[in-house]
């Protein structure tokens, strides 16, 4: 039994987990479950990063894994939980546009992403190059989720999940970005969620609802 090959396959497994979780987010109506799914996605990302770090011997990847763990598995979920508590939307259920149709579009996106990543992946020498397509698919799926959601909190989660996909793409294709860039992004995400949190409260104050369709009314008539 080849431990090295097995670890490589585990990275693939993590990648696929990310993809399935991205799909699960698209199909999920409950805001609370969405946050759980997002936490799980972060966890899968941490495991994948640690595995890549172990296989390539790039020590700085351990740091990025640690940052991800702290940020995406602990800090942001806690923040999100507090937000939905304060906004009283913990048990909210969204009405969604036809889920199977959305998922069919998702499948098309996956094919597109796989197709797109194919030539790039063959250039890369990284250990997990096969997963680049999956990472790209995760990004696109999260984007799709942001498009089809009508409420603010799921949109923020979609945004964060997209960042997960980007991070994974960086890990998979190039064994991670330079440390300084990663720290910068981590900080950006943190600030981003704080600002978005503030916005959510503001929207709520203004319209008594988190439905961002109300923002359509803000344009000049």
């Amino acid at each position: 039994m080849n431990a090295h090959a097995l670890l490589g396959q585990s990275i693939n497994l993590c990648a696929v987990t990310l993809l399935v979780l991205a799909f699960a987010m698209i199909a999920q109506r409950r805001i609370l479950t969405l946050i759980h799914l997002f936490t799980l996605q972060g966890l899968a990302l941490v495991v994948a990063t640690v595995l890549v770090a172990h296989l390539t011997g790039d020590h700085h990847l351990y740091f990025s894994a640690a940052i991800t763990l702290v940020l995406k598995v602990v800090l942001i979920p806690i923040l999100l939980h507090r937000v939905i508590d304060r906004l009283h939307v913990r048990w909210d259920v969204e009405t969604l546009f036809n889920i199977p149709t959305t998922m069919l579009i998702g499948i098309v996106l996956v094919v597109f992403a796989f197709q797109l990543a194919d030539p790039i992946a063959s250039l890369s020498a990284s250990i997990a190059r096969g997963t680049l397509g999956i990472a790209l698919a995760c990004v696109l799926l999260s984007f799709l989720m942001m498009i089809v959601r009508a409420k603010a909190v799921p949109q923020v989660i979609g945004f964060l999940s997209m960042e997960n996909g980007l991070f994974f793409a960086a890990t998979a294709a190039t064994s991670g970005m330079p440390m300084i860039v990663e720290l910068g992004i981590a900080f950006d995400v943190l600030v981003g969620i704080l600002i978005l949190g503030v916005f959510m409260f503001q929207i709520r104050e203004q319209f008594d609802s988190l439905d961002i369709r109300h923002l359509e009314r803000l344009k000049d008539d």
């Binding site: 693939n12 993809l19 799909f23 199909a27 889920i99 796989f114």
Partner: peptide, 21 residues
């Protein structure tokens, strides 16, 4: 139907993942 369509599409994704990886 939604539940089962999800299962169906997941199985299709499994096939796609197989082709990719």
């Amino acid at each position: 139907p939604e539940f089962l369509a999800t299962a169906f599409l997941l199985a299709v994704i499994a096939l796609l993942v197989h082709v990719l990886l």
